[in-house]
Lab assay of single mutants.
Amino acid sequence: LGPKYVGLWDFKSRTDEELSFRAGDVFHVARKEEQWWWATLLDEAGGAVAQGYVPHNYLAERE
């Protein structure tokens, strides 16, 4: 699936296409579209919880 990303700060969605998340949440990014990335929010087991657009500057690649 490629690298995983972690949320740096809490983010509250403003549209139906955006995905709310908390700092520390883990994502798989499917598409990078300039300022907004289409991402899947993952649970602790790595299963998909939700999908939506997230601001790229709120995520960091997980080491």
Rank of each mutant, 00 (worst) to 15 (best):
G52E: 01
G2H: 13
V6F: 09
E17F: 13
P55N: 06
L42M: 06
V54W: 04
F11N: 02
Y53H: 03
H28K: 07
G46P: 03
F27T: 01
S13I: 06
D16P: 14
E63P: 13
R22T: 08
D10P: 07
R14D: 10
E44Y: 08
A45S: 13
D25F: 07
Y58A: 10
W9F: 13
A48N: 08
E63M: 12
R62W: 15
K4E: 13
A50H: 05
V29H: 02
A48M: 11
A45Y: 14
L1E: 13
A39M: 03
D10H: 06
G47D: 14
E34N: 11
L8R: 07
F21G: 02
H56S: 15
Q51N: 08
Y53M: 08
Q51V: 11
G47H: 15
A48F: 11
D16Q: 11
W36M: 13
W9Y: 14
E17P: 05
E63C: 14
P3F: 10
V29G: 01
L19T: 01
D16L: 10
W38L: 08
A30L: 15
S13H: 04
H28M: 12
A60H: 09
E17T: 12
V29N: 01
E61K: 11
Q35H: 15
Y53L: 07
R31E: 06
A23C: 07
E34H: 11
A39F: 04
T40I: 15
Y58L: 07
A23P: 03
L19K: 00
V49N: 04
P3V: 13
E63Y: 12
Y58R: 02
A30I: 15
Y5V: 01
K4F: 15
G47Y: 14
G47N: 15
D10W: 08
K32F: 09
F11Y: 15
R62S: 14
T15P: 01
A39R: 02
L19I: 11
G2M: 14
K12R: 11
Y58M: 07
F21S: 00
D16A: 14
T15H: 11
E18G: 11
W38R: 01
G52F: 05
W38I: 06
L42W: 03
D16C: 11
G47R: 15
E33N: 08
K32N: 06
E63R: 11
L1C: 14
Y58G: 05
K12I: 14
W37D: 00
F21N: 00
G24T: 02
T40Q: 07
Y58E: 00
S13E: 02
P55T: 04
L41E: 00
L8Q: 05
D10C: 11
R62H: 14
K4Q: 13
A39C: 08
D16Y: 07
R62L: 15
W37N: 00
D25G: 05
G7Q: 03
P55L: 07
R31G: 05
D43V: 05
H56G: 15
F27Y: 02
P3M: 12
G2P: 12
D43A: 03
D16E: 12
R22L: 09
S20D: 07
L1V: 12
T40P: 00
Y58T: 03
G2T: 13
A60I: 14
K4D: 10
V26G: 04
E33R: 06
T40G: 01
H56Q: 11
R14I: 10
Q35A: 12
V6P: 03
Y53W: 15
F11Q: 02
